Simulated scan of single mutants.
Amino acid sequence: MSMSPEDRARKIKVIIFDVDGVLTDGQIFVIPGPDGKGIEAKGFAAHDGLGISLARLGGLRVGIITKRNSQTVAIRANDLKLEFIYQGQHHKLSAMNEIVVKAGIAVDELAYVGDDIVDLPILRVCGLAIATANARAEVKSSCHYTTPNPGGQGAGRDAIDFILKAQGSLERVIEQYLDAENPVAQQADVGTGNM
C-alpha cells in the first residue's frame, strides 16, 4: 500500500523550492542596464515569505535549488534567511544529495516543490514531491501533492501549510508567529525571536 501525501508530509524536516515558476510566476523581466547588459527582475509572493517564517517556527529547514544564476534570487534568498541556497544547478539531484548530507536527514525527510521537467530527478526520489498548480503535466503526474495556487501566487505557502497541517503544528505556529509580532509579547520575551 502506498503512503498518503499526509503520511509523507509528517516525516518532512527540510523543504526545498525551485524558484522560477514556483516562488515566482515564471516570468523573467529583463530591464536594460546602463552598460547595455540586462538586469533581471522577478516577482515574489509575500505569502510565501511569511510561509517561510512559519516553516521555520514549525521546525522545518528551508532552501532553494535553481538552474539559473540570478542576483535577484540571491537578494531574496538572503532576505528570507534561507539555509540552503543552490543557484546555477543544471543537475539538481547533486544539490539535493548535498543538502541531505548537510542536514543529516534521510531522503524521505525532504520535500521538494517544482514545476518543470528539470525538477523531475528530485521529485522522483524525495519523500514528498509537490507540484505547483501551474506545473507541467509530466511534473504533476510524478508528484504526491499539487498546490491549489500557482507559482508566484502562494504555491510556496500552500506547500508549507500542507506539511505543517499534516504535522499538526500549523495552528500553533500561526499563533506563535502572531505572538512574536506583538510588542507586548516581545517585551515579556515570550516571542521566539530568531527570525
Rank of each mutant, 00 (worst) to 15 (best):
R76I: 08
A77M: 07
L80K: 00
L80C: 02
K81P: 00
L82C: 04
E83V: 11
E83L: 12
I85M: 05
Q87Y: 11
G88Q: 09
G88K: 07
H90A: 14
H91E: 13
A95P: 04
A95T: 06
N97D: 10
E98G: 03
I99D: 04
A103P: 00
G104W: 05
I105D: 04
G114M: 15
V118S: 13
P121M: 15
V125K: 00
C126W: 00
A129H: 04
A129T: 07
I130G: 05
A131R: 09
A133P: 04
A133C: 12
N134F: 03
N134H: 05
A135G: 00
A137P: 09
E138H: 03
E138Y: 12
E138M: 08
V139C: 07
K140F: 14
K140L: 15
H144N: 12
T146Q: 00
T147Y: 02
N149D: 04
G151M: 12
G152Q: 08
G152N: 11
G154D: 12
A155D: 10
I160K: 01
F162H: 03
I163V: 02
K165F: 01
L170I: 14
R172E: 15
R172D: 15
R172H: 15
V173Q: 00
Q176K: 06
Q176T: 12
L178K: 07
D179T: 14
E181F: 11
P183M: 15
V184N: 02
A185S: 10
A185Y: 10
Q186T: 10
Q187H: 12
